[in-house]
Structure formats: structure tokens, C-alpha cells
Design a protein around this nucleic acid. Structure first.
Length: 272
DNA sequence: AGGAGTACCCGGACGC
DNA sequence: TGCGTCCGGGTACTCC
């Protein structure tokens, strides 16, 4: 669920809180979340300092002072919470890291999500197929149009393909198509050059706006947090079946395409 | 190539 | 309130 804006919001908020701090304790309540026996994981992480936090697509990479990395993917339903105490005492968290300043980083809702301890090399190997970041300066409008134009499928499945561009998921692919006034089911070979450039502008605009608003996560990040999730009620079409299109007033339609939800305005989004 | 199907997982939503 | 059932979502894999 968390996509580019949500993960980048976490990265931005987390960096000043954990960078330069050492991990003092490691709690693992779900062994499947990690990639080695709990004891080894705890022993390897205890005393390690976080140098910086990097986002790659929908992943977060915690760079540790021994050269290794913690690779996080929240998949569906995962979230982060940071503070001296858990959000609710009876909440269950799959992993909890305690830092040397008494604060803790809680990893919650990790069902399919994971937190893996990897060497720098194997972390790179794991992420090698990720496409460019949407805001990579080398990804010019022309480069994006060319990359997209090399595909032959439908627009939405291609936008959520992490090999095209990394970080776009089910929600923002619909938001981008809506902003660009193209149907998510449009066939890429039928798109005009102008539409591909419009998709590029919409991609950057939609992701940037959502990130500025704090993404759509529905959980607080810290106890007094009122920022994270601020974009949730600004989403234009996703999860708004039947509501009037913000552009033309027609009811937003929901269709299932290859078992994923797709929200769009049938009136003002076109097929090329 | 791309698209369809499927497994993974379990909190939370829903039904009674 | 309580118990059972089912769903969703990103990714990785298979197969056509």
C-alpha cells in the first residue's frame, strides 16, 4: 500500500530522528519478518549505528555503520511508529528497535512485508531490477516518453511495474492517469507523444503534491503527529467510487483489472 | 512481451 | 459481545 509519497515521508521524518543513533535493543515478534535466526539478527544489530536512511522505490534502506543494510518493504498494510512508547500498549509489532536515546522504532502490520539484514552487495542485488526514481534528473520528459513508448500493454499495469519507474502503486497510478486525463486501460501504443509527456508531468505533480501533504497513511507516525496521512482526503479518484469527478462531476467508476482495483472518470479520461 | 493466474499473510471488516 | 469467514494488496513466480 505505501507508495513513493508515503515511503519518502517516512524517510524524511525518520532521518533526523535515527541517524547517528545506535541500536540498543532489538525485539522480534514475528520471525518471518526477518531473514535470519532471531538471535543472530539481534546480536548483529545491537550496538550498530544508523548512518543514514535511503529510499529506493517503495523500500527503505537503513545504512548501518558496519557496512550492512536493513532493507524494509512495508508491502500491504505495513506502517512505522516512532517514540519512547508504543502507540497503544496492547498493539503488536513485528519488530521494535530501541535506540540509545530511549526512542523506539516500531514496525507494524508487516504481513507480507519484511525487514532484512543484508550486506551492501546483496541489498544492491535485491534492488537491481528497480526502474529509475520518478524524480531522477536523468529521467527527462523525453526519456520517460521513450521508456513508456517501448511498452505495449495497458497503461495502468505498466505504471505500477517497478521496472518502468520505481515507487508507483495502485493508488497513485490511478491518480496520475486521472490528472493526465487518460484512461488507465488505454493501450500504450495508442498514446500520443503529447499524452506521454502529460503523463510525465502528472506523475511528478501527483507524487510531489502527495508527498508535501504527508502521503495517505492512515496511522500516526509519532504521538503528536498531525502531518502524516494529510493527503488521504485529497486523493481525487482512488476509493471514490460513485463520488462526483472533481473535474467534470460524473460519477467515478470502479473496475477490476487483473484483480486490482481501478478508479477513473469515464467522462473526462480518454483512451489516448 | 504481456497478461493471466496464484501463493504468500493476517488484521480488520463483515455477517450472523 | 463473540465467533467465524473472507478479503485485500505488492511481489514473485508460473504458464501460455
Amino acid at each position: 500500500m505505501p507508495e513513493w509519497p508515503e515511503m519518502d515521508t517516512y524517510r524524511r521524518l525518520l532521518s533526523p530522528l535515527v541517524c547517528g543513533h545506535a541500536i540498543e535493543a532489538v525485539e522480534v515478534n514475528r520471525e518471518k519478518t526477518i531473514n535470519e535466526p532471531v538471535g543472530e539478527f539481534q546480536a548483529a544489530l545491537t550496538g550498530r549505528k544508523v548512518l543514514f536512511v535511503e529510499r529506493r522505490g517503495k523500500h527503505l534502506l537503513f545504512h548501518l555503520d558496519d557496512g550492512n543494510r536493513l532493507l524494509l518493504h512495508l508491502m500491504l498494510g505495513g506502517w512505522l511508529y516512532y517514540g519512547p512508547r508504543p502507540e497503544k500498549e496492547d498493539s503488536t509489532y513485528q519488530v521494535v528497535l530501541t535506540f540509545d536515546d530511549g526512542n523506539r522504532l516500531f514496525f507494524g502490520g508487516l504481513r507480507l512485508g519484511y525487514l532484512h539484514r543484508l550486506s551492501a552487495k546483496s541489498a544492491l542485488e535485491k534492488l537491481k531490477d528497480l526502474g529509475p526514481d520518478p524524480f531522477d534528473s536523468r529521467l527527462t520528459p523525453e526519456a520517460f516518453a521513450k521508456r513508456l513508448g517501448a511498452r505495449r500493454g495497458k497503461l495502468k499495469p505498466t505504471l505500477v511495474d517497478q521496472k518502468l519507474v520505481s515507487g508507483i502503486g495502485n493508488c497513485y497510478s490511478d491518480e496520475i492517469c486521472f490528472d493526465a486525463e487518460v484512461l488507465p486501460t488505454a493501450s500504450i501504443p495508442d498514446l500520443t507523444e503529447e499524452t506521454k509527456l502529460r503523463l510525465y508531468r502528472s506523475m511528478r505533480k501527483v507524487l510531489e503534491e502527495a508527498t508535501t501533504n504527508g502521503g495517505y497513511m492512515d496511522r500516526k507516525f509519532t504521538e503528536d503527529d498531525t502531518y502524516v496521512g494529510g493527503h488521504d482526503d485529497r486523493v481525487r479518484v482512488y476509493d471514490r467510487e460513485g463520488e462526483p469527478c472533481p473535474r467534470c462531476g460524473s460519477p467515478i467508476r470502479l473496475e477490476i483489472v487483473s484483480s486490482r482495483k481501478m478508479f477513473f472518470c469515464p467522462a473526462c479520461q480518454k483512451d489516448r
